[in-house]
Simulated assay, not measured.
Amino acid sequence: MRKKADLPSKICVTCGRPFAWRKKWEKVWAEVKYCSDRCRAGK
């Protein structure tokens, strides 16, 4: 198991906060731009 600090991260386009990789984004990580549904809706 990996530590959270070892996971890749990105900066959210809407809020500008960093967010870490999640298992559910495993296949689409290259296309993920937003940290949450709230940020995606408020784009």
Rank of each mutant, 00 (worst) to 15 (best):
M1V: 06
M1D: 14
R2S: 10
R2E: 10
R2V: 12
R2W: 07
K3Q: 08
K3Y: 12
K3W: 15
K3I: 14
K3P: 00
K3T: 15
K4E: 09
K4T: 09
K4V: 11
K4G: 02
K4F: 10
K4W: 04
A5R: 08
A5N: 12
A5Y: 08
A5Q: 08
D6E: 15
D6S: 15
D6N: 07
D6G: 14
D6Q: 13
L7G: 05
L7P: 01
L7M: 10
P8F: 10
P8K: 07
S9Q: 11
S9F: 07
S9L: 12
K10Q: 10
K10T: 03
K10G: 01
C12G: 03
V13W: 04
V13A: 09
V13N: 05
T14L: 02
T14R: 11
T14A: 14
T14H: 11
C15D: 04
C15S: 09
C15P: 01
C15Q: 01
G16N: 03
G16I: 01
R17A: 15
R17H: 13
R17C: 03
R17S: 11
P18N: 13
F19Q: 04
A20M: 14
A20P: 01
A20Y: 07
W21K: 08
W21P: 00
W21D: 01
R22F: 08
R22K: 15
R22S: 02
K23R: 13
K23L: 14
K23E: 12
K24A: 10
W25T: 03
E26G: 13
E26I: 05
W29Y: 11
W29Q: 02
A30K: 14
A30G: 05
A30Y: 03
A30L: 09
E31N: 11
E31R: 13
E31L: 03
V32M: 06
V32Y: 00
V32R: 00
K33F: 00
K33A: 12
K33S: 08
K33V: 04
K33I: 05
Y34H: 13
C35L: 02
C35P: 02
C35V: 06
S36I: 07
S36P: 03
D37I: 03
D37S: 11
D37Y: 08
R38T: 07
R38Y: 12
R38G: 05
R38A: 15
R38I: 08
C39D: 06
C39E: 08
C39M: 01
C39W: 01
C39K: 00
C39P: 08
R40Y: 10
A41I: 04
A41P: 01
G42R: 11
G42N: 12
K43G: 04
K43R: 07
